[in-house]
């Protein structure tokens, strides 16, 4: 459930919500980190739920000693009022048996908050692509019919590629089986998309095929892709890079090395 950290509670009416899906390589979460740290967004509340594994730490976007000591929780909501944008960051895995409950919680929160659209940043296993998916860009999108009504023109201008439906039984040609939507390693992505279609929510999924490893370049690719649509930054891919890497990304490969080794 959403708990506001402010008084009065924030109003999300007609805001765009950007959120990650916990998926392969945590690409969506990393991309959201870049948005939060670059736009210096303000925390307005928490999603406090038993569906996420508890974790906590000091401010992941600290810029100086003064703002370093500030407790952060597994799921928090940030806003940038001038951009009419809210961002939900999810920092912990979803408890497996509770993923359906978590999706329902999100869908009902999105509905009651009155967001004008929701964008889910996600990823999918690169090794499970089929032949047609291996050609060209690794970026794909999905939109619910409700969002397509309003954003058809914008999406056409972007000339993005829609996520392909794949045959249920590759190699077998059976006229009776329809191709299906398949997002391996995408966590709640597919479920959230299907729920949103059923509930007539305006929602888009932007996803990237990737493998686990150092997924920082993937995060930049995905966030730049999102920027082509939402225009959060002007010319972000120009050098030097305009996205700001948060302090919490340090030491991704472990602690320092013993100097006596050399």
């Amino acid at each position: 459930m959403f708990i506001s950290s402010q008084n009065p509670p924030p109003c999300f009416k007609d805001f765009t919500l950007v959120m990650p899906a916990v998926a392969v390589g945590n690409v969506g979460q990393l991309a959201v980190d870049l948005i939060l740290s670059t736009l210096k967004m303000k925390r307005v509340g928490y999603i406090h739920t038993d569906c996420l594994i508890p974790m906590t730490g000091n401010n992941p976007y600290a810029t100086c000693n003064e703002d370093a000591e500030e407790l952060h929780t597994p799921a928090e909501v940030y806003t940038a009022t001038e951009l009419k944008m809210a961002v939900l960051q999810i920092r912990a895995p979803i408890i497996q048996t509770k993923s359906k409950k978590f999706r329902q919680l999100l869908v009902s929160w999105i509905k009651t908050s009155g967001f004008s659209r929701t964008v889910v940043l996600s990823s999918s296993h690169a090794y499970q692509r089929d032949d047609q998916q291996m050609k060209g860009t690794p970026l794909r999108y999905l939109v619910t019919p409700s969002l397509l009504k309003d954003s058809a023109v914008a999406l056409e201008e972007l000339s993005w590629r829609e996520m392909e439906r794949v045959p249920a039984f590759p190699g077998l040609t059976d006229a009776n089986t329809d191709p299906r939507l398949y997002v391996p390693g995408g966590g709640i992505t597919k479920g959230l998309y299907m729920d949103s279609c059923a509930e007539d929510l305006p929602l888009a999924v932007l996803l990237l095929f990737c493998s686990e490893g150092d997924n920082i370049p993937d995060a930049f690719t995905l966030v730049n892709h999102l920027n082509d649509w939402l225009h959060l930054l002007e010319n972000p891919s120009q050098k030097p890079n305009k996205w700001k890497i948060p302090t919490s990304w340090s030491l991704l490969f472990g602690s320092g090395i013993p100097p006596a080794m050399f």
Partner: peptide
């Protein structure tokens, strides 16, 4: 593994 269990 950061990959997510298949719950497709």
């Amino acid at each position: 593994s950061r990959a997510v269990e298949e719950d497709d």
